[in-house]
Structures are given as C-alpha cells and as structure tokens.
Design a protein around this nucleic acid. Structure first.
Lengths: 205, 205
DNA sequence: CTTTCATGAGAACATAACGAGAACATCTAT
DNA sequence: ATAGATGTTCTCGTTATGTTCTCATGAAAG
C-alpha cells in the first residue's frame, strides 16, 4: 500500500472536496484552515480522515505543508500581492484584449512608515467619494498644504476628516464635502493637524 | 535550481497580536513599547512570554532589536505592507480607539487569483463613491448576483461598470449610479459579464 | 467468492502554541 | 556607583492541533 511513485494527479471526489474547501477558506480567511475546520466543512467527524486527504494532496503536489498549526500552503496560490492593471474601463474593448498590462501593488502604494488606517464614520466627505465605512490611509503629519484633505483635531476634541484651506494669516478653514454641512473657520491655535489623507479603500462583499 | 529558502513568515495568532500592538503603539507614541506594556496590551502576565513572541517576530524579520530598553524597531520590508487600523474617525468626536487592534494588508484583502485592476473613466458610478480615475478591483466572473456591481460588455463593445439586476427572464438591467444617466435593459444575449467589483482604491497625491 | 479501493470513525500519541513565573543579566536614572 | 527597571533565559505546565495507527463499510472489479 506504499506508493512512492505517484504518477496520477487524479484526485478522488473527497480529495477534490478537500482541496476546494482549502482554497475557498484561503481566499476568504487569508490563512490555512485547521484539520478540524476542514472536517467540519466536509461533514467528517474524524480529523484522521482529513489528514489522509491532506497528505494525498501533498503527495500529488497540490499543496505543501509545514509541521505547524495552519501549515497548509497552496502551491498555485503563493501570496499574490500584485494585481495586473489591465486598463481603463469603458474603453470600448473587451477587457481581455487590453495589452498594456502593468502591475499594481496597493500595499506598496499605500503602505509605508508613519501611515495608519482609519475607518470613516459619517457622511461629511461624501461628495469626495468617501463614504461611511470606508477605510482611509493617513500619513502622520503636523502640517499640510492648502486644499489637502486632513485629519484635524479642533480644540483637542474634534477629530474629523476635512479639506483644509488657509484663507488668511492665523486662520484655518475646514471644509466638509457635503452640501448639508458648512465650512468653518478657526484660529490657527485651535486646530491641530493629525495627518494627511493619502489613500482611500473600499471593500465590497 | 530550486530555491529552498523557507520563508516561514507565517505568524501565529499571538504573534500577529504582538506585531499589531507594537505597530499601533509605535504610530501613537512614536516609540517602541516595553515588554511589560505589550504584555498588558495583550492580557499576558509574563514578560517572558512576550519576549518569546518578540523573538519570533525578529526571527521572521518583522522587527529588529537593540539590546536596549525600548529597542524594538519595525522593519520596512516589502513583505510587511501592513498598516495599523487605529480607529474610527467621526464627526464631533475624538478618534475612537478600535477595540480589536488589527493590521490591514490591502494587498491581501484585495489580491487573489482571478483578480485585476481597472481604472475608472467617467462618472457613471459617482453616487457609489466611484469617481473618475479611481482604481477598481475586479474578480473575473461570468455570472453575478442581482444588485452586484459588475463589469459588463454590451454587444461586445461597451465595457462599463454598472449595478446589475434581472427584472425578468432573459432581461438584464444595468443601472448607473448617476442621476443624470438612465438604467437600460438588454436581452441577456447582448450582455457579457466580465467580472464583479470587489474593491475600490483611490490614491491621493 | 475474494481483492482492492475510497471512504469514514476513532484511539493513541507527538508536537505546537500558549501561558505563568523564577532566576539572572543588563540597562538606565539618580 | 548603586538601585530599580527592563530584558533575557530558563523550567514547568495546560490545551490545541497534527500524526499515525487500527478497524469497519460498501462499491467495483476480477
């Protein structure tokens, strides 16, 4: 019953099920499942059975394992953090036909020292396309240029996301992007700039 | 030649917690935390345990250490494009600390097999907060659920981003998010679904 | 009929992951 | 220079998870 010569990449039904579960778990959770989680997903009581399927998938080169707790790695699924930028939509062509494929790495674009993420609550920047629940990337800074969108702390109490302007010396104007709200002006010493908006991200389920 | 370099950058749950706490602390306090501060932040009694996690993070190249009192330094490695999610920003309140201090990796959130990026041209989805020039992440798919936002190709010519509905059999309705534009209905055979919207990103200069 | 294979249950054991805490070394403030 | 604070290195546990077995059932093939 020892088969070191595995010529067949054919998977049995349950092996397919196992691989499928691992793949979907991976894309959803961004980590490998436990054996018991696979078992539950497949309706199997015994983790020993799952272990057999996982070992088969390893023999057939569909996965690699570390002897660790969530040690399954998909061989076709190494961490992909680069996406192809295919082109501009509404270009009048099928997407696949666009040739100029450059690669885009959001983490590289948005990551970096002195940056952090805040989740937006409310609708004060809705006309800028920044909606309730969106994630914004902020670069830590204490100064800003006019017309930048910044995180401002007013009187040490009021942290909001607003566009900033400097209409005259020692005066700061904070402008929401919402017609139902009004721009306000403060003396410079009342407004502390916390950071500058560098990116915005929304994730759809 | 095969690269046998084992990049076990996989972090355990508590190692992630530890890294998350360190990065959050760093961005807030502008200095590294003490082991006892990490311990308190994670609800651990023993600084020896924390030391073990910190050593693991050093082994896995997420940090470097000096043998000094606040000697942890975050490494700026491309593998570590994680940003701390600090809190929610709300009108009229200070930034709320987020209970679950988590790290955000946009590439992991948005990346994955069968995904690509398009740049949006035009304003047809402006009321969804998708503006001209924004980047959208599309997951390749040929089917969609009702009310999802999809990339549709009409008569093989017109690739656009629209919300989709199926009002009756063999009819597809494509709905822009712009009051100045109208929803249109097509027979099923004229519309080819190219993919489903899974994310949206904007980068500010 | 027997053999083989895919499937499943479950026991027994090995190891990983996590945590507490002691003892000691080293750093740092005074 | 000294004392307290902080970092390092251990040992000792507990629980969770992975690994290796044996046994059992049913279907398909010879």
């Amino acid at each position: 019953m020892k088969e070191n010569l595995v010529r067949t990449s054919m998977l049995t039904e349950r092996e397919k099920d196992t691989l499928s579960f691992i793949t979907s778990y991976y894309t959803k959770e961004r980590k490998a499942p436990l054996l018991t989680e696979i078992a539950q997903g497949l309706g199997i009581q015994s983790k020993g059975v799952v272990h057999r399927y996982v070992s088969a998938l390893e023999d057939k080169r569909y996965i690699v394992r570390n002897p660790k707790t969530r040690g399954i790695e998909l061989v076709d699924h190494p961490d992909i953090d680069v996406l192809p930028l295919l082109g501009r939509i509404a270009a009048g062509k099928p997407i696949e036909a666009i040739e100029d494929k450059s690669l885009i790495n959001f983490a590289h674009l948005l990551g970096g020292a002195n940056r952090y993420v805040l989740q937006v609550k409310g609708h004060s920047m809705i006309e800028e396309g920044i909606h309730n629940g969106d994630l914004v990337v902020i670069e830590h800074a204490s100064t800003a240029r006019s017309n930048q969108i910044i995180v401002a702390l007013v009187d040490g109490e009021d942290a909001t996301l607003k566009r900033i302007q400097f209409p005259k010396k020692n005066v700061v104007r904070l402008i929401p992007a919402n017609k139902t709200m009004q721009a306000k002006e403060y003396s410079t010493d009342r407004v502390a700039i916390q950071g500058v908006l560098v990116g915005q991200v929304r994730i759809y389920d």
